[in-house]
Amino acid sequence: MTQGVPVAAQRRSATAVRPRVDVSALVHLRTRHPEAVAEAAARRVRRPLLRASERLLIVAADHPARGALGAGGREFAMANRADLLERLCLALSRPGVDGVLATADILDDLLLLGALDGKVVMGSMNRGGLQGASFELDDRFTGHRPQDIERLRFDAGKLLLRVDYSDPGSLTTLESAARAVDAMAERQLPLFIEPFLSRRGPDGRLRNDLSAEAVTRSLAIASGLGGTSAYTWLKVPVTEHPEDMAEVMATTTLPAVLLGGEAGGTAQEQAAAYEKWRGALQLPTVRGLVVGRSLLYPADGDVAAAVDTAAGLLGEQHDDQ
């Protein structure tokens, strides 16, 4: 059996020392032993999706496959793959982090690095709606297929569902999403749907509507996709007015996690994001957080501290129950 690429030992220590990823060793392994990815997936130590607390903290890193590379005010922050992998390995090593959401290329690297043992692994399924493209809303399923998630022994899938009532491409995405719901349910695999009502502004850029009315409609649409909702979760943004979240979340009985989004480039904006999450986490259907750039590229650069703060929010809710 081919062995993986070692990550620096301090990755599993209690300190926040950032690990170093040996890109040359990764490329060598990919070049000479491409079967190593499947072997690493087969021997990965799995865990249940939920533990006793019924809370989830997932770090998201599926943005690059859609051409969305910006973070923290830097247009190409996520373009350096070694840097991204090091941030991910550090985040995954912190207490309270349950797993990762990413596309195949990133998950393959993390498998080879041995960073996914005992973690929830979510495959990102539709990344065809490239950021800024004229076809952005025709969000084809160009990532993990249900059979890939099953074959690799991953734990769940995620799809993005953006709907613009004026764009026919949305109908293609809706139909494809419904069939993905069916295919995942046939395999008894959870599927996290991230729905938005979206529209193009005068500059042609696509923007998601975070009003309470729009988020409510998007949840209703996503909840009804497919032949069963038994394995469907929702990945929900906090509305532009966080005090509306209780009424918005009353739209569905499906379990949900909060979408973190990008908190902004300042410490104040980061703190404000934590407060929004804290309030919404008190709602009965909300079971956790799926956050990417806000934790991986925080305003002060301290990945460990950002991750620990988010984990602490979930711990607060567990203690209150």
Rank of each mutant, 00 (worst) to 15 (best):
R18H: 08
P19G: 05
P19M: 06
R20N: 13
V21N: 01
S24Y: 10
L26G: 00
L29G: 04
R32T: 15
A36L: 01
A38W: 09
E39N: 07
A40W: 05
A40M: 12
A41V: 03
R44P: 02
V45I: 11
R46K: 12
L49V: 12
L50N: 04
S53W: 08
E54P: 02
I58F: 14
A61H: 01
G72C: 09
G73Q: 07
A77T: 03
M78K: 15
A79L: 09
N80V: 11
N80A: 13
E86R: 09
P95Q: 11
D98Y: 05
V100T: 06
L101Y: 06
D108N: 12
L110W: 01
A115S: 06
D117P: 03
M122E: 07
N126S: 02
G128L: 08
L130C: 08
G132H: 05
S134P: 13
F135A: 15
D138L: 14
R145F: 11
Q147G: 11
D148W: 09
R151M: 12
L152A: 07
F154H: 08
L160T: 07
Y165C: 12
P168F: 03
G169M: 05
G169Y: 04
T172I: 11
L174E: 02
A180V: 01
A185M: 00
E186D: 15
L191Q: 00
E194A: 05
F196K: 14
G204I: 02
R205F: 13
R205W: 10
L210F: 15
R217M: 13
A220C: 14
I221D: 10
G226M: 05
A230S: 13
T232A: 08
V238R: 07
E240N: 15
E240M: 11
H241W: 10
E243I: 08
D244R: 02
M245G: 01
E247Y: 09
M249R: 00
L254T: 00
G260N: 01
G264F: 05
G264M: 04
Q268N: 08
E269V: 07
E269D: 12
A272H: 11
W277H: 14
A280F: 08
Q282K: 15
L283Q: 05
P284Q: 07
T285Q: 15
T285P: 10
G288S: 07
G288L: 09
V290N: 12
S294H: 02
S294Y: 00
L296T: 03
Y297L: 00
Y297T: 02
Y297Q: 00
A299Y: 05
D300E: 09
A306E: 03
A311W: 01
G312K: 01
Q321V: 15
